[in-house]
């Protein structure tokens, strides 16, 4: 599966408790839609760190990086790029 599908499936299964893709668009804000709270975002960080072997720095824990499927995908790819280089 792609990073996008992995992340989307993780959010759907663990926070929306569904396998219906249509319940979450790639740009939906986790905060605005009440999908994640402040402890939920920590669980997502654990997930992407474990799954993709990256480390999320304190200053990177901002909604711009973590608040939707598409922002998470961009962020993970960016971190993987940095790691590869």
């Amino acid at each position: 599966m792609s990073i996008k599908q992995d992340i989307k499936t993780y959010i759907l299964e663990n926070y929306l408790f569904t396998d219906d893709d249509s319940q979450l668009s790639d740009s939906d804000s986790f905060l605005e839609k009440g999908i994640l709270d402040s402890t939920g975002i920590l669980e997502v960080i654990y997930f992407i760190e474990d799954e993709y072997g990256i480390k999320v720095e304190d200053e990177e824990m901002i909604p711009e990086n973590l608040d939707s499927v598409e922002s998470l995908v961009v962020f993970v790819q960016h971190k993987q790029g940095l790691k590869a280089s």
Partner: peptide, 16 residues
């Protein structure tokens, strides 16, 4: 347990 140092999670705490 809310670690607000260095901006860690601050945006989420503020949103909540």
């Amino acid at each position: 347990y809310l670690d607000l140092s260095g901006g860690r999670g601050k945006a989420y705490v503020q949103a909540f």
